[in-house]
Design a protein around this nucleic acid. Structure first.
Lengths: 231, 231
DNA sequence: GGCCGAGTGTGAAGCAGATCACAGTCGGCC
DNA sequence: GGCCGACTGTGATCTGCTTCACACTCGGCC
């Protein structure tokens, strides 16, 4: 088994990737041995929408923002990903140009697997292919659900959903909820609404005692009340 | 090669399926031999949101409407599919419950492949798996694009896009544009807006001479003007 | 022929959220 | 310590779309 400069075995980078969660031990290691590490400075662009793309990135350390551009120059944040998440997986699977721009928010290291390596690896592993199809299909379901949310739900409900999603992410090992670290502008960009609307809605929640607000952080106080509001 | 009651070889049903477009001849036939034909009366429900699901349907004849329910009992049409299209492919790939309800609009026959058959077939065909991954990935990109449209574009632009999409579907063999067959209520449900808004916008287009309206049909007159408006 | 249901056309009123225009506050850094 | 830039809070106005309430028109069928 290979190790890297930081002493971690190379397969540890992709071990907990949701995209690859359903793969077996041997398959994972075989794939991991083909990857390399790359570094990006805070603020640097990793790749741009429209670029030819042929590699998957796994975030080893740091944070990456994924954005798309509207025709009129507006920017929407598709997602923020951090340690353990991956991005750029479309390029791996279909080899098309990048569908979004990715930027390192902080200093970031990523573990990179290229398309030729991936295809070569996949060709000998039908079980892995099935696992990947399953994963991709689940993700497609989720996207479809977001689409439905956008047409059916108002700002209040979508904001609640987003907060609950972020709050399950920001848990410590014991399942304790930590404050969510996100500015209101970031939330607004994620939801595709104005910063002001998010602010007003958040304060409405705070007045009801469901959460408390501070500069750059949201602390969920009453999960049950929020959860009830989202359904 | 097997044939059916209507004299068509069985693989002709799935030959032109976008989901399977990238598969080779032999793979297609092997999969086709495992399917069966089913019939549905006009108005009958093929499966319901939440049902356990384990089969892909290909429309051989007729038309099927795919809908989802909101929490408050509202219904949105996800898509209408017709001869040559398929639906229910999630069940095939991940075996989860149905994510939408499907109803036969007119008398319909579908060609059905079940999940166990599919998995069995796929296990011996790594190339097929890769092709499927590619297809699924492309579809995920499209859904992501719709999501972006919904946050960035206003009703006018989304309506134009939808009309152009429908009008490329309704072409005869020579690429000639046929009138689009759809009521304004159907369009509204597809776009997730009110019937009245669609009507007002369509009439605005008609006044500009970009299309002409009749009961249940829309005829595109100026493709270029529409296309310019959508970008 | 007349009725009835489905589809269309259109105006008035209401509303969610955008946009604009600020003022206040915190943290870091010169 | 004081300044500056990023973040937050909040009203006023504007707007795109919904909802409501109709009138009209076609086609089928009793």
């Amino acid at each position: 088994m290979q190790s890297n400069e930081d002493g971690r075995p190379q397969d540890s980078y992709i071990r907990d990737l949701p995209l690859l969660a359903r793969l077996g031990e041997a398959d994972l290691q075989a794939l991991a041995s083909r990857g390399v590490l790359r570094r990006f400075a805070a603020g640097s662009v990793i790749f741009r929408e429209g670029d030819p793309g042929d590699a998957l990135h796994v975030v080893v350390e740091g944070e990456v923002r994924i954005t798309v551009l509207s025709g009129s120059g507006n920017v929407a944040t598709v997602a923020n990903v951090t340690t353990g998440d991956c991005f750029g997986e479309f390029a791996l699977l279909d080899g098309r140009p990048r569908s979004a721009t990715t930027t390192a928010v902080s200093a970031t290291r990523t573990f990179v697997v290229t398309r030729p390596d991936f295809i070569d690896w996949l060709s000998n592993r039908p079980a892995a292919a099935l696992a990947l199809l399953e994963t991709l299909s689940l993700r497609l379901r989720k996207t479809d659900e977001s689409l439905a949310d956008l047409t059916f739900l108002d700002l209040e409900q979508r904001l609640v959903k987003q907060i609950l999603r972020l709050s399950t992410v920001s848990q410590d090992g014991n399942g304790l909820r930590l404050p969510i670290r996100a500015t209101q502008a970031e939330l607004a960009s994620l939801l595709g609404v104005s910063r002001e609307s998010v602010n007003k809605q958040l304060n409405a929640f705070a007045r009801k005692g469901w959460l408390s607000l501070a500069r750059g952080t949201i602390t969920v106080l009453d999960v049950r009340a929020l959860r009830q509001r989202s359904s």
